[in-house]
Amino acid sequence: MSEMIQAENLTFRYTDFSHTTHLALDGVNLTIPYGQFAAILGRNGSGKSTFAKNCNAIALPSGGRVLVDGIDTMQPDRIWDIRRACSMVFQNPDNQIVATVVEEDVAFGLENMGVPPKEIRRRVNEALRMVGMYEYCMHAPHLLSGGQKQRIAIAGVLAMEPKCIVLDEPTAMLDPRGRADVMHVLHRLHEEKGITIVLITHHMDEAVQAQRVAVLEAGHLILDGTPREIFVQTAKLHSLGLTAPQSVQLLEALNARAQAGLETDALTVEECADRLEAWLKGGRA
């Protein structure tokens, strides 16, 4: 059976004006099965966006190959099938909204697909409800907050009913409230619709919510595993320009200072509190 996204030995080279080439991805093997919520991490310039662009044929591999929903992205005549299966949301919501009315923007992809008007209306309403923006359907997008705009952008791709959505730092320009709203919507799409989510992010607290974390460094896939496996490797993460969640750091510091001997894989504040509570009770007894 095919996978949602299957990158085999993927290499990508940028060539700039002076014909110097720059290897942005170097032999990446990464397979994302249907229905997974995956996070991709890595420092600036590590190749995350380049990988994302290779997932729906905006960029084509210089070496190796990418299969999306079983289709090789190098087949030019299948490019629209690929983009239908795997849509993309970008960092800056302002630069991906095309219309002056929210519902017209959500309808844009469907209009391009040639969906009949009645069906467009139904899917637009459903997508807007899904992201919790239905009341805003007649608003002007430029008057909405960043988080709201990003949810409109997500509704725009959601209406096209893709199997997979790749999001390139969708929360980078948002305030904490907007970030929480967007993350909530992503979980909802994943759980209720079974959509595969590939989330590129710099926020560890978002990555811990994923089922799988992949870390890129200088175009190589360095780490790949569950958040629990990845985030306890604080020293390794540090060398990759990333920081472990604060809960993990706190437990490590306690271990170092007080020889607490705690398991450090507490990814959330709740888990951390549980560990500490158990430790404090044990200490008193």
């Binding site: 729906n56 905006i58 629209w80 983009r83 239908r84 849509s87 993309m88 970008f90 800056n92 302002d94 630069n95 991906q96 095309v98 519902e103 017209e104 309808a107 844009f108 992809g109 469907l110 209009e111 391009n112 697909m113 040639g114 969906v115 009949p116 008007p117 467009i120 209306r121 637009v124 725009g156 791709v157 096209m160």
Partner: peptide, 26 residues
Amino acid sequence: RRADELATAMECRLYRGDTGRTRLRQ
């Protein structure tokens, strides 16, 4: 820069000009 990003975003949403396009509001 915006124009470039917008063009990419439009391509991601399957924009290919006038061919086979329908409209929300007839």
